[in-house]
């Protein structure tokens, strides 16, 4: 695996749109070619080289390419957008749309991510060591096909609207979240190891939500079913199972209504 290191040298005055920073775009390219890739600031088109020191070169394929992004990238959007393979490590706090529409590979952020990280995600492994903003692993506006696959793990807290219109994959938040978890969820799994204040699983059709901490106000459309012992994210624990959202439509299987599942740790 070849490593390309991007070190920010000039901060954008507005924001930088750097959707070219992916293993897919870097593979097969030398440092100078990578530096010549486009980046946008407002209506102007520049190159990555204007903002980043580029060293190393891409591997033969995306899968053989590892990118390390160093320095303050808090004004850089779209890092890792649509990546399909390979690896990106961001050492600081990137801005919005990090790993958006990601399809594969590994993305590690050592700091925090802003809103819309991992939206429309289809596959891959996305780890955020700090906190995540709003709309983590959510659907793009208007799309009923939200996150379809892959894993997002947040070691800190997450904002509101995580897993909005989620269809598949897994989101794990080690800390707390804000309101609206898994709204309109139809599949996949959300695990919150801290608290989720309210509006959890609203309009949920299918899928599973686990909450280890507390929920201040439950949605009215969740009905208690039973207690269960479950293994979740490698740990065993006792959970109370609720079915919901009973105000929402649900498919039927063998004459039985299939609900979404909300598991509250006892």
């Amino acid at each position: 695996m070849e490593t390309v290191t991007l070190t920010i040298k000039n901060q954008p005055t507005l924001y930088l749109e750097a959707d070219t920073i992916t293993p897919d775009n870097f593979s097969g390219k030398k440092a100078s070619e990578i530096a010549a890739l486009h980046a946008f600031e407002g209506r102007d088109q520049f190159t990555l080289g204007k903002y980043f020191e580029v060293s190393g070169e891409g591997g033969a394929t995306a899968a053989d390419t590892r990118i390390v992004v160093k320095g303050n990238v808090s004004r850089v959007k779209y890092i890792g957008m649509k990546m399909t393979a390979g690896e990106i490590v961001i050492e600081d706090n990137p801005d919005m749309y990090t790993g958006a529409w990601m399809q594969g590979g590994k993305l590690l952020v050592k700091g925090n991510v802003d809103a819309f990280a991992g939206i429309g995600m289809k596959g891959g492994e996305f780890v955020i060591e700090g906190n995540a903003g709003n709309y983590l692993g959510a659907a793009y506006r208007g799309d009923w096909r939200g996150m379809q696959g892959g894993v997002i793990r947040v070691k800190g807290n997450a904002g509101s609207d995580i897993g909005y219109f989620m269809n598949g994959g897994t989101i794990i938040v080690h800390g707390n979240t804000d309101v609206h978890v898994g709204t309109h969820m139809e599949g996949g799994k959300i695990i919150i190891k801290g608290n989720a204040p309210s509006k959890v699983g609203g309009q949920m059709v299918g899928g599973e939500i686990f909450v280890y901490g507390g929920i201040d106000v439950m949605m009215p459309g969740f009905k208690y079913v039973q207690d269960e012992d479950l293994e979740v994210d490698g740990e065993n624990a006792k959970f109370s199972l609720f079915y919901g959202d009973t105000g929402e439509r649900h498919p039927k299987r063998k004459g039985q209504i299939v609900y979404g599942k909300l598991h509250l740790r006892n």
């Binding site: 309210s198 509006k199 609203g202 309009q203 106000v217 949605m219 009215p220 459309g221 009905k223 959202d245 009973t246 105000g247 929402e248």
Partner: peptide, 16 residues
């Protein structure tokens, strides 16, 4: 949001 949701639950004759 909860109240709107409750009205939907009521329409489906589910418990509240």
């Amino acid at each position: 949001y909860e109240l709107l949701s409750a009205l939907r639950v009521a329409l489906r004759n589910e418990p509240l």
